[in-house]
């Protein structure tokens, strides 16, 4: 496709990059370029304005608590309006781990403090306290007739409401809250998930799904062509085996 390009806004690449989030950006780039699709990524830090019209996909990764606090403030004050507008315009959003939590209405910390979120997704997250079990481990999620694999590491429990649907259902692992079997969230073109690992490289079907969702806003019925994913599929299958084997032992 001539002149076609995926334009990505990477929110807080310096502050929110802790769990190998670089792999997600590398993956988007690689899978676009393999199909001759251009790839542009722009990092937006604290205080930077988000221009909703200029992007097809907005990505935000995970962070430590200290950094999450700074980001939460900026999201509400500087970026929540344009984010809201972007979602209305069907811009795709991919939010991982800490970034996922911040897309909700609020995050209540282990100490009971409520950090307001961007309110892009009708959901909230509660950390039940420093003594509560942290959800750590390999995770497999049933999604769209196939699986998504990764690693989760979160203290907060996320509860969806309204029109927000879980991204998938937990096969092995904890998921959003360890109770309802749901993992992640979908609303319009917004995808949220606790999975890193990195998420996208060994989940090529999900990666393509996100890219297609992002490009269809400007190119109706757009479909990505097949590429050689042999190593990707092998890594995916090995991760599924590892996660399910461990969960039986657990």
């Amino acid at each position: 496709m001539k002149g076609l390009a995926l334009r990505v806004a990477h929110l807080f690449p310096k502050l929110m990059n802790i769990y190998g989030d670089r792999g997600n950006i590398l993956c988007l780039q690689r899978r676009c370029e393999a199909r001759g699709i251009g790839f542009e990524v722009e990092g937006l830090e604290l205080g930077d304005q988000l221009k909703a019209k200029e992007y097809d996909l907005i990505f935000v990764g995970g962070a430590q608590d200290r950094e999450q606090r700074l980001v939460a403030e900026d999201l509400v004050k500087v970026k929540s309006r344009p984010l809201e507008e972007a979602v209305k315009r069907n811009v795709a959003v991919l939010a991982v781990c800490g970034g996922f939590q911040l897309m909700g209405r609020f995050y209540r910390t282990a100490e009971g403090e409520e950090l307001p979120g961007a309110s892009v997704l009708d959901m909230h997250t509660i950390h039940p306290g420093a003594q509560a079990q942290r959800f750590i481990g390999n995770i497999v999620v049933e999604w769209n007739g196939t699986t998504v694999v990764g690693f989760e590491n979160h203290g907060g429990r996320t509860f969806l409401s309204g029109n927000v649907q879980p991204l998938g259902h937990v096969v092995a692992g904890f998921g959003n809250n360890g109770e309802d079997g749901g993992e992640g969230a979908v609303y319009r073109n917004v995808f949220g998930t606790y999975l890193h690992g990195s998420l996208l490289p060994k989940n090529p079907k999900f990666a393509d799904h996100v890219i297609e969702a992002a490009l269809r806003r400007r190119h109706k019925d757009f479909r990505l062509s097949e590429i050689d994913d042999a190593v990707e599929h092998a890594a995916h299958a090995a991760a599924v085996r590892q996660a399910t084997r461990r969960s039986i032992i657990r």
Binding site: G20, G23, F151, H196, G197, A235, A237, A238, Q242
Partner: peptide
């Protein structure tokens, strides 16, 4: 959590290897 390998600059060795063998429980990652 093997995510950390995505934070490593393996690109430093691009074009500098003759043979590469990968193994271990997460060899495919």
């Amino acid at each position: 959590d093997v995510s950390w390998i995505w934070d490593v600059d393996f690109e430093l060795l691009e074009g500098k290897t003759r043979s590469v063998t990968v193994s271990g429980l997460r060899a495919w990652d």
